[in-house]
Amino acid sequence: MSVLAKPESTPKSTPRYQFRAMTVSDLDAIMEIEPHIYSHPWTRGNFADSLKSAHSAWVLLHDDRIVGYALMMMVLDEAHLLNLSVSKPYQKQGLGRLLLEHMIRIAQALKAANMFLEVRASNISAIALYENIGFNEMAVRRGYYPAHHGREDAILMGLAI
């Protein structure tokens, strides 16, 4: 079954989601998801480089199928969230929050004092999620992201953990 298949209806009392560390063997499934959710997706090389750099990389599984993933880079006592993604059919079900909370726990275990991220200024739902968790806007990075017509600003957000 494709990783883009519709999620099955499952009672919330019996979640079938689990986390595990991302491996190179996950990249085919991730590359099936990535271009469907981003106008300028990461490349396979971006993911492979992150894994080679020993960044904290996790997948979220639903019945052994990858439905989300996140990557984080540690620099001293700062965690930088590089990518947090949920497959389109699984969006708007709280899985982004589940992934983000998992990454915050990982950052805490790694003794991070703060977590930082950039988010497209147009990604209102992601900004709302980050604010709801407690992230605050710290700055605007002008022209940070490629866009179909030029560049798009990024909102730099931070969370004390």
Rank of each mutant, 00 (worst) to 15 (best):
F47M: 10
Y90P: 01
K52P: 04
R65A: 11
Y38N: 02
M157C: 13
I37D: 04
L117S: 02
E8Q: 13
L110Q: 14
G150I: 07
N46E: 00
L71K: 08
Y144T: 02
L159S: 04
H102Q: 12
I37Y: 04
V140Y: 08
T10A: 07
N46C: 03
L51S: 09
W58P: 00
Q93E: 03
Y145A: 00
T10G: 06
R105G: 13
W58I: 08
T10W: 06
A107S: 10
Q91L: 09
P15I: 06
N46Q: 07
L27Y: 00
D63M: 05
L99H: 03
L156V: 11
I161E: 02
A160M: 02
Q18E: 14
S2W: 02
Y144R: 02
S25C: 14
L84P: 02
A48S: 15
V67S: 10
Y17V: 12
M22L: 12
I155C: 05
A29R: 10
I104C: 10
A79R: 11
K111A: 15
H102A: 04
Q91A: 01
G45C: 04
S87M: 08
V3H: 03
A79F: 11
I155F: 14
D77V: 03
H149S: 12
A126F: 06
A147C: 09
E78T: 08
Y90A: 05
E118C: 02
H80R: 10
L129S: 01
T10F: 08
F135H: 03
Y90C: 00
M157K: 02
R65D: 07
S50W: 09
L82F: 01
E8Y: 07
R120N: 04
L81F: 14
G68C: 07
H40Q: 08
V59E: 14
M103I: 00
M31Y: 00
G158V: 12
I155K: 14
R120C: 01
P41H: 05
E34F: 06
L98Q: 11
L100R: 05
F19C: 10
Y17R: 11
N46P: 12
P35N: 09
I127L: 15
H55D: 13
I66P: 01
M31A: 11
A154R: 07
A113C: 15
H148E: 13
L129D: 04
A147R: 05
A154W: 01
L100V: 06
L60R: 14
I124A: 14
V3P: 04
M138W: 12
Q108I: 10
K111E: 13
V119Q: 13
A139K: 02
V67W: 06
A79E: 14
A48E: 13
F19T: 05
L71A: 13
I106H: 01
E32H: 01
S122F: 03
Y144W: 03
K12G: 05
A29K: 15
I155V: 15
I133A: 00
S125N: 01
R16M: 05
Q18Y: 08
A154N: 09
A54L: 12
S87G: 07
A128K: 05
L27E: 03
S53H: 08
K92L: 01
G143A: 08
I133T: 00
H148K: 15
D28H: 00
E34A: 01
P89Y: 10
A128V: 10
I104S: 04
A29C: 07
D49H: 07
Q91T: 14
R65F: 06
G45Q: 14
S87P: 00
